[in-house]
């Protein structure tokens, strides 16, 4: 039973309420579903809607995305056009109008496709708390969350050079469905071979994971079918797949190499 919903108009006030035990709520797509089913843990909610932590800014290729930026705003942003396909693979328009970039860091797989992208992009996360601010790599937040009283305020990423960003999400239906396997990657090539690779996978572990084994296979080799098949099989060592209503662990591991290849070759 909810006893209070606060909508602070400053970050400091939001941090204060969070430190006092309030449950943070950004877009509400997770928390309000819990409120509606009577399963939210805390009686006090703290909405971040008016805390002033939205907005997208670009400095060269360095993008800073405020935590309460909605997925719809990312979808419409010319600066982040490379993320458009990824964002449109998430839920539906009426969810994307509410769901936020910050919130996407905290949903369990197989949801959280933007978090998978941020992992591939080597993004960092700005966090404000009662003891001050810090900035950490996104995989730290994905693994550990944030401390009580802390509020994610923004993510920072480098917009990838043209031709280096890859994204593919396998779903049970064409739109509005969770990941069976999601692949997000920033891969650079020169002279016909891979020179750098950051590949993140969704849908195949409780949190987004780096496919380090696949990255290792690709370095120095061309992005061709047999190389990608080998990388995909190697990637099975990086995952901890689970059964759920969408697909079984067996199936996810089985088709991972197929979808890894399709992310690069179509």
């Amino acid at each position: 039973m909810i006893t209070a919903v606060r909508t602070p108009e400053s970050l400091a006030a939001a941090v204060g309420h969070a430190a006092a035990g309030g449950r943070l709520m950004a877009g509400g797509t997770v928390v309000m579903a819990q409120v509606n089913s009577g399963s939210v843990g805390s009686p006090e909610l703290v909405s971040l809607r008016r805390a002033g932590i939205g907005g997208i800014s670009l400095d060269g290729s360095a993008a800073r995305i405020g935590a309460t930026t909605t997925l719809a705003e990312v979808e419409e942003s010319p600066e982040l056009a490379f993320l458009r396909d990824a964002v449109r693979s998430i839920a539906s328009p009426a969810i994307r109008s509410l769901a936020t970039v910050g919130g996407n860091l905290f949903v369990p797989q197989p949801y959280g496709d933007l978090a998978v992208c941020l992992l591939a992009l080597d993004a960092t996360v700005e966090i404000a708390g009662p003891d001050g601010s810090r900035e950490v790599p996104v995989d730290v937040v994905l693994a550990n969350g944030v401390a009580p009283g802390e509020v994610v305020t923004a993510v920072r990423l480098a917009v990838p050079a043209p031709g280096t960003w890859f994204y593919h999400k396998a779903m049970r239906r064409k739109l509005n469905s969770a990941a069976i396997v999601a692949v997000a990657a920033v891969v650079g090539t020169a002279g016909g071979v891979v020179t750098s690779a950051r590949i993140a996978l969704g849908g195949v572990a409780p949190r987004p994971v780096r496919a380090v084994s696949a990255e290792g296979v690709l370095i120095g080799r061309p992005l061709e079918t047999d190389v990608l098949d080998e990388a995909g099989r190697a990637a099975r060592g990086d995952i901890e797949p689970f059964d759920d209503a969408y697909a079984s662990a067996w199936y996810r591991a089985r088709v991972l190499p197929v979808h890894l290849r399709r992310a690069f070759l179509g």
Partner: peptide, 15 residues
């Protein structure tokens, strides 16, 4: 893993 909502209770959409 019995479905708990309309996302998990799979049905084809308009696409």
């Amino acid at each position: 893993h019995g479905p708990g909502d309309f996302n998990e209770y799979l049905m084809p959409g308009p696409a």
